[in-house]
Design a protein around this nucleic acid. Structure first.
Length: 576
DNA sequence: TATCCTCGCGCG
DNA sequence: AAAGCGCGCGAGGATA
């Protein structure tokens, strides 16, 4: 509290034209005023270090550059001719640090403890100015700075969205969640006891195995019990179990399902991650090398469909859920300029398009073929179907095949906007050179070949997954601005009723910035959920659609590829 | 007792 | 008929 920070104004040529010294507590008012005057592009060392406090004070910003996020892209991008200066400034190559999910007093010690061995970027003004200058120079040396600028802006906007979604939280119906748990597991037990329905199912399994002491919670012990009962499986995974037909299998699969629900999203999860009716997972923008977001806490990447009914809009509000159908193949069609593939997906389900065009017989086959093409399958049904795509979609297949070839040889690949894959590890390179030595054994050669294949499948998928992630970021970035421009709950709609009551309820859970206006609450690779006042739900839905159309134009111009959405407006997220 | 690894399963 | 990409998480078991 009360520590001094410096803020510097730069003009378009990055020349210093002013500076200010503020107490940290004065920052929100300062930012609010500047934002109202000129909506500058703020430069943050690291968004989670600055933005949560602004949001808590009721201040949103329109745009920023996040130096940590942009550094990570620029230091690797093949588009940048001279990236040595950026790459050498390795204090900026730091771990993502997320804002704590909720300021809980008892967790403070733990949080500081954990953060102390995490490498953080510097937050002082001179370091930031120096890095900003290095990045600007690098960007100017790029072969296609326009694309990279787009990527950097989208990436930074993603940082803002993550902070905003964490501040807003997903409206979560704890009672509904508890009902689902009770239905599946039985009522909440005391302490760490197992719920009643689980105990009952476990007894059925033990009876069927004729093994009253069988331990179902340890893979190893369970495997022994299964073998003793004459069930010959190599693992306890459910797909393998499902192939046996023994009376113990059905209750065992049921038990595993219950056990998973309890461990991953049971009452303990509810206590830890949902408070005041808001689920606040921790997002990590740019956390995956492909550009996808990762998560670190709360399991935002794996909320089971079973629990989707627990997402519930506040009274007088709606949830608008939207996902892009077949985002990755569409991104591939667009970036490769494959007109036939674009045509297969235009105005319809892309998989059904493949059936209509006579390329495969069923939608299921189409899905297996397309996923196989993007993931690099060579065996089974998928390996059999992929070659048909090579005939029909030569441009798309050429792009992924050549990405795989480059990767297998140790090379780098880049996404549409210029995010470049990481160099293969030293261990990988050692394997390859060992297999080229005169005394290489067949085992060496095998290992090297397998590793080369793995790397090839990684780079094959990198260009597609990464470009899809860019589309999604562009979608998000545009959407957050469109939503911010929608009127508040009691503005511009004289017909609105009980608005005061609704906002009164909201103010606690969502904080001052989000309590009155449509806002993003969830994002997962190719889907968004927006929480909006009922009277603006249609406008919010239109914003989601318009943002998707803009994203396609922004990235791919007039390429004949569309990105259709499945969109639902409801009080509850759809049942899975 | 703390930390790492493997397994299995949830999500896209 | 569980292949073929990217993740996070919890539990049990092994290791320090």
């Amino acid at each position: 509290m009360g520590s001094k920070i410096a803020v510097v104004d730069l003009d378009g040529a990055r020349t210093r034209i002013g500076s200010h010294h503020l107490d940290v507590d004065e920052l929100p008012a300062f930012v609010r005023e500047r934002e109202a005057q000129s909506r500058p592009r703020w430069v943050f060392s690291d968004t989670p270090n600055w933005y949560p406090a602004l949001l808590a004070a009721g201040v949103r910003i329109e745009r920023c550059s996040d130096l940590r996020l942009t550094h990570a892209i620029l230091m690797r991008s093949e588009l940048v001719a001279d990236r040595s200066a950026v790459a050498e400034a390795d204090q900026w190559d730091a771990d993502p640090v997320s804002a704590p999910a909720a300021p809980e007093a008892e967790a403070l010690f733990e949080v500081t403890e954990r953060r102390s061995h995490i490498k953080q970027v510097p937050h002082d003004i001179e370091s930031a100015l120096a890095e900003f200058a290095r990045q600007s120079t690098a960007l100017e040396s790029a072969s296609d700075p326009g694309r990279l600028r787009l990527l950097l802006a989208a990436e930074s906007a993603g940082g803002l969205v993550a902070a905003e979604m964490q501040a807003a939280g997903v409206p979560w119906d704890v009672d509904e969640h508890d009902r689902i748990l009770a239905e599946e597991l039985g009522p909440r037990p005391m302490g760490d006891a197992k719920p009643a329905k689980m105990l009952a199912v476990a007894d059925q399994v033990r009876a069927a195995l004729d093994d009253p002491r069988a331990n179902l919670d340890s893979h190893i012990k369970l495997l022994h019990s299964l073998h003793s009962a004459g069930i010959n499986v190599a693992s306890t995974s459910k797909w393998e179990l499902a192939e046996s037909d023994h009376p113990a299998i059905a209750p065992l699969l049921e038990y595993k399902k219950q056990s998973r629900l309890l461990a991953a999203n049971g009452w303990h999860w509810l206590d830890e991650w949902v408070s005041e009716g808001r689920y606040r997972p921790v997002y990590v923008p740019g956390g995956v090398v492909t550009g996808r977001w990762a998560a670190s806490g709360g399991g935002a990447l794996q909320v089971p469909r079973q629990l989707r009914p627990a997402l519930r809009a506040d009274p007088g509000w709606r949830l608008i859920s939207a996902d892009v159908a077949q985002l990755e193949p569409r991104a591939l069609a667009a970036m490769s300029g494959d007109r036939a593939m674009a045509e297969a997906g235009r105005g319809r389900d892309l998989y059904s398009g493949l059936v209509d065009e006579g390329i495969v017989a069923t939608r299921q086959e189409a899905k297996i073929a397309v996923l196989g093409a993007m993931y690099g399958s060579t065996t089974g049904d998928s390996g059999r179907l992929v070659p048909r795509l090579r005939t029909s979609f030569p441009a798309a297949m050429g792009l992924v095949d050549s990405a795989a070839e480059v990767g297998a040889a140790g090379g780098l690949v880049s996404t549409w906007l210029g995010r470049t894959s990481p160099v293969p590890s030293q261990g990988w390179r050692r394997l390859q050179s060992a297999s080229n030595q005169f005394d290489a054994t067949p085992a060496d050669e095998n290992r090297a070949r397998r590793a080369a294949g793995d790397q090839g499948r990684f780079t094959r998928n990198f260009v597609v997954q990464g470009t899809a992630a860019e589309w999604a970021l562009a979608w998000l970035a545009d959407l957050r601005l469109r939503l911010a421009r929608l009127p508040g709950v009691d503005e511009g709609n004289p017909g609105a009723t009980s608005a005061g009551e609704v906002t009164g309820h909201m103010a606690t859970a969502s904080g001052p910035v989000f309590s009155r206006r449509a806002h993003l609450v969830f994002f997962l690779h190719d889907e968004v959920i927006v929480h909006a006042p009922a009277q603006h739900a249609e406008a919010a839905a239109a914003a989601i659609r318009d943002a998707a159309a803009s994203a396609g134009k922004l990235l791919f111009g007039d390429a004949p590829v569309d990105f259709p959405l499945d969109l639902t407006i409801s009080e509850r997220a759809a049942k899975g």
